[in-house]
Amino acid sequence: MENILEIRGLNKTYGDFSLRDVSFSLPKGYIMGFVGQNGSGKTTTIRSLLGMAKPDSGSISVFGLDSVKDAINIKQRLGVVFDSLYLAQHLSARQVEQQLRPFYKDWSSEAYFSRLKAFDLPDDRRIGDFSKGMKMMLMIAVALSHKAELIILDEPTSGLDPVARDELLDILTEYMSDENRGVLFSTHITADVERIADYVTILHAGRVWYTGLKDDLTEQYVVIKGAPEDLPEAYRKQCIGYHAYRSGFDALLPADALAGLPSSIEPEKASIDEILVYIAKEDRNERHADTDAV
């Protein structure tokens, strides 16, 4: 499979925060959900990919091209949507089109205006007066008007109402009807990833916690619940985000560690949301352990 995006050993430090050895790849024809808590490094990774942040080390290749040396060529073929509008607020969608058109070799005004029409966006109103959902759709229209082969979305659904979110996910699914394209979709709303992503990369505290097929992830982990005394110590050590409460415990457990688990403990398939929550709990457990030790 040919990769449309490949990140290898990306490191970047800002004060207390570090991206450490981030590596993942997205094959052509697929959507990757890029998930993690706020502050896990998703935006820093995307900014590094776009050349907006300078990595300390590592390499990024897009369409098989080097993200630094071939930045302009890459950006001609890349569509990007951020969580907030990056266009002049006092202009209309028509004026924005006139402003951006000359930058792109493959810009199609026809595609742009037909998308505006499809999204019900007026082309003669100040875009600063648009709602959050309308602004998002406008950025999508811009991103899709120059025949972008890879779309990168940084938290596009945060702040959108469920209808607008649904609409956006439909657009991405439709966009992927061409198998030479790809989508990297950063979000902390994992329901969106569950719905449309083929691949998932989970970033946690600046490191890649998981990268691979979404279905493999949800098959690799289970949530276990039961009475603490039923859980042998050997299993407890393998638990992620073990949390005991008055009437029992819950934790995430790698599916391959299930063999021999007492029948009183019922495993359930883990959702991406649950996985993220248990990873965060595991961190807190470690912090508590450190504090206890002190």
Partner: peptide, 19 residues
């Protein structure tokens, strides 16, 4: 100041032009 008002730092990051 139009850069700050309109969030152009993001736009400058994605336009196919040299910095």
């Amino acid at each position: 100041g139009s850069e700050d008002r309109n969030g152009f730092s993001k736009l400058y990051g994605i336009l196919p032009v040299t910095r």
